[in-house]
Simulated scan of single mutants.
Amino acid sequence: MRVSIPTISLDPLVTKAFPQVSKTEAVSRLVSFIEPGNVAVLTGAGISVDSGIRAYRGQNGRYLNPNYHPIFFHELADPTPKGHRFRQRYWARSYLGWPAIKEAKPSTSHYAIGALQYSNLVHKLITQNVDGLHGKAIPITWGAYEKQRRILELHGRLRTVSCTRGHSQSRAVFQERISSLNPSWRKYVDELARTGSEPRTNPDGDVELRGRYFTDFVVPNCELCLLEGVNADEASIIKPDVIFFGESISSAVKDRSFRDLECCDKLLVIGTTLATYSAFRIVKHALEVGKPVMMLNIGPTRADKFERIEKIEMKSGAVLTDVCSLVLGPKAHHDPELRRLMMSGVVQPPIDDTADNDTGG
């Protein structure tokens, strides 16, 4: 069966035009939506564009990079020599792309949501993003438990890796292991950093190799698997803890996403086309259980056909900080932690994708 990358139909019967509004009106509508509190927020790749991470799709719902051919889960998990070549390709590209993801800083939108979380206006946050930026923009008073309770990473995280037998390690440790086994590639990464010529990085950390071949790339084995007697080919089946194309989120994650939604009064969707069904069904479920839904996104989305959704076609970075200031009022200036969150964040969109900023994940 041919498996395609999810995208957004441009059929006029499926999508519809939403009226353009001024920034003032957009801020006012968002304030009215958020101010009562107990809001669930669902975010996509668009919210990380101001952090320098490209979105998957542009304003027409299509992939921004027409040459992007992601590896599917069944290819990565194939224990045969063919699967090993897929893993060489994936980890060579991901090895080059990880530094940009690791060094990315939260945008003003990430911190604005952090301020709303700190004030308990946003009770639950569900993100499709695997970059970990929401976790970097949380209140300093939150420990690991509160962070895990309040933020659900729907599609996983790039910062940890696991083998198929469940042995896990941090991405930083795995990256160092790759470096030690591939000195020529490490030299190449150092050269890219020195010249500032970073390769184009996709939201999942994958990059284009620009003519560099990966046949010499050594993929680390899982050392614990080897100690348990697993053969080397199977021990090399290691993946980041993210959901690949062709892979489904677990029932536990799906169930939690529904619970997180159901304990809130409404849903605010930011920076996503909802092309992946795992995110789309959260919006569907919100409508089914009678929750108001508002979307902040530029371009068509999978949910545009629903009449009960209120949509604002605008970049999150253009409005969320102002929304926070109005919703939080004087305490945004008097509370030191709120002041820190409100004054933090970068606005550094990728230079070559500025026309498509804040489109969907």
Rank of each mutant, 00 (worst) to 15 (best):
A303K: 01
K239E: 04
T359E: 01
R159D: 15
N67E: 14
R186Q: 10
G44N: 10
L116F: 07
E228Y: 03
H334L: 04
R87V: 02
P240F: 00
S325Y: 07
G211V: 03
G44P: 02
W185M: 01
V173P: 00
Q117M: 15
L13D: 12
V242S: 00
P6V: 02
V230A: 12
R159F: 07
A275R: 10
A193P: 03
S344Q: 07
Y111S: 09
W98E: 00
D358L: 01
H155R: 09
I138L: 12
G114W: 01
L30W: 01
I34K: 02
I237H: 00
A104Y: 04
D241T: 10
F245Q: 11
T15V: 15
D353I: 02
Q169N: 10
P70E: 08
S257Y: 05
S170Y: 06
W98I: 02
H84E: 09
T276P: 02
K16D: 15
C324F: 09
G52M: 03
R302D: 12
C225Y: 03
H155E: 04
T127I: 09
Q59P: 03
K284Y: 05
N221S: 13
P70N: 11
H334G: 01
V14N: 12
N231L: 11
M295T: 11
S22P: 07
V31T: 06
N221V: 14
E313P: 02
W98H: 04
E35H: 06
N120P: 04
A26F: 00
V130F: 00
G52Y: 00
R93V: 01
N221Q: 09
I243A: 10
I151S: 03
S250F: 14
S119R: 04
D335N: 15
G97E: 00
V293H: 07
C222V: 14
P36W: 04
H334C: 05
S316A: 15
F245P: 08
W91L: 00
V3H: 14
V293R: 05
Y95L: 00
E234W: 02
S119Q: 04
L296M: 12
D206L: 04
L13C: 09
M314S: 08
L320E: 00
H334R: 09
T43K: 06
E313M: 12
E247I: 03
K16P: 09
D304Q: 15
G166I: 03
Q175D: 05
G83N: 10
N297I: 07
Q175M: 12
P139S: 01
K124A: 11
S250L: 11
K82S: 13
N357L: 12
V347Q: 10
P330G: 08
A45N: 09
A115Y: 00
D255C: 02
L328H: 04
D190R: 15
V219S: 02
P336G: 06
L227R: 13
A115H: 01
T272N: 03
A112N: 10
H74G: 00
N60D: 15
Q59R: 13
P183W: 09
Y213H: 11
Q88C: 06
S180A: 14
D78V: 14
N231C: 14
S278M: 07
R281A: 07
R302A: 14
E176I: 02
A318H: 12
R177F: 08
V14R: 14
K311I: 05
C264D: 03
C263M: 11
I243L: 15
